[in-house]
């Protein structure tokens, strides 16, 4: 690794000041993603600003109305061990349990998990990549077995086709969570909450970044709203081995049943786009309908609607459909004929 300066920040203000003023400074918390990038030279920071010690941002608080506020520096292990998370947000609990390894979850923060960089080998290796400042995305017409099905108009190389690697992000999307972003110089009352899906952006040549964050912006809190009464949740992840792998495809589903009727359905797909991909059309069609084998078939087909395989990732389409079917089975009652 190239030498760098290191500051153990004693306040968020101090960290934000350095991050917004010093080109080459990087936010650092658990370090489990950034160090892998720094070791390879993919990222060469001049100054690491470590906020891991800011205890003010490591908490779980109940929100009025029943939701949960999660301080961004809470470790994944702390979230995983929390009873409220298990009881009320089982999809989130599961998405954390299948993230990385126990050793990583002890260090990794939930904020860092959302802001981690893609696992694309063009990015992490020395290959053409928009995130390196290159002209084209090498994966679009190259080795793209682990890449996107959704979210780009054409595989012309002008848009990044990497997928977001986070599992919790997918569960949080289905739970309609928001992230609170601290902007340098703004008082905490002015910090805005953004729907989690809007935190992410697709890297392009002109905007080679994976999130909407500007230098100095820090994700400080994740807000998970109370879920509809009686709703059922699931998170399913397909990997190419049984543990410690990123999702090939994952599905988070939250369903609210009113008798036989699906009063509400939320389906978020992971491993298929630069952000958690909500199957909005499928959700709409499902809403208000009686659960039946025909309805399930329709939801499954619509979840894959618009998928654009890149060449080596065609297998993700049937995998996605199968996983959506399993998720629907889990969140609806099997006796209703699915």
């Amino acid at each position: 690794m190239k030498p760098f300066a290191y500051t153990a920040a004693t306040s968020l203000d101090q960290a934000q000041e350095i991050l917004s003023e010093e080109w080459g400074s990087r936010l650092y918390a658990g370090g489990t993603d950034l160090l892998t990038l720094t070791k390879r030279g993919t990222v060469s920071p001049d100054h690491l600003v470590d906020i891991k010690g800011l205890a003010d941002f490591r908490y779980l608080r109940h929100l009025t109305g029943g939701g949960l506020a999660i301080g961004a520096l809470t470790t994944l292990a702390e979230l995983e061990a929390n009873r409220t998370v298990h009881r009320r947000f089982p999809a989130l609990a599961r998405s954390i349990a299948v993230t990385g390894t126990p050793q990583l979850r002890n260090r990794a923060t939930v904020g860092g998990n959302l802001c981690q960089q893609p696992r694309c080998w063009y990015y992490r290796g020395d290959f053409p990549c928009l995130l390196h400042g290159d002209e084209v995305c090498g994966a679009a017409k190259g080795e793209n077995a682990y890449h996107a099905l959704f979210g780009y108009e054409s595989a012309d190389g002008n848009r990044c086709v990497a997928v977001h690697p986070s599992d919790p992000a997918v569960a949080l999307s289905a739970l309609e969570a928001e992230v609170v972003v601290a902007v340098p110089g703004e008082a905490p009352v002015n910090w805005e909450a953004t729907p989690i899906d809007d935190l992410f952006q697709q890297p392009t040549k002109d905007f080679p970044g994976t999130t909407i964050l500007n230098p100095g912006d820090v994700v400080v809190e994740i807000r998970v709203p109370e879920q509809p009464k009686g709703s059922r949740q699931v998170y399913l992840k397909a990997m190419d081995r049984a543990a410690w792998a990123f999702a090939l495809v994952s599905v988070a589903a939250v369903a609210t049943l009113d008798g036989n009727r699906l009063a509400d359905l939320r389906l978020a797909l992971g491993g298929v786009a630069y952000k958690p991909w909500r199957a909005r059309h499928a959700e709409e069609i499902a809403r208000g309908h009686v659960v039946s084998p025909e309805l399930v078939d329709e939801i499954v087909e619509l979840a894959a609607e618009g998928a654009m395989p890149l060449g080596a990732n065609e297998y993700k389409v049937p995998l996605l459909k199968g996983l959506v079917r399993q998720a629907l089975r889990a969140v609806t009652d099997e006796s209703r004929g699915i």
Partner: peptide, 25 residues
Amino acid sequence: HGVCGACTILWNGEPVRSCLALAVQ
């Protein structure tokens, strides 16, 4: 790079990968 676990130590009682942390931390 944080995959094999051979470097696991306990940090305030919790297992962590010592190759994915800086000494200054």
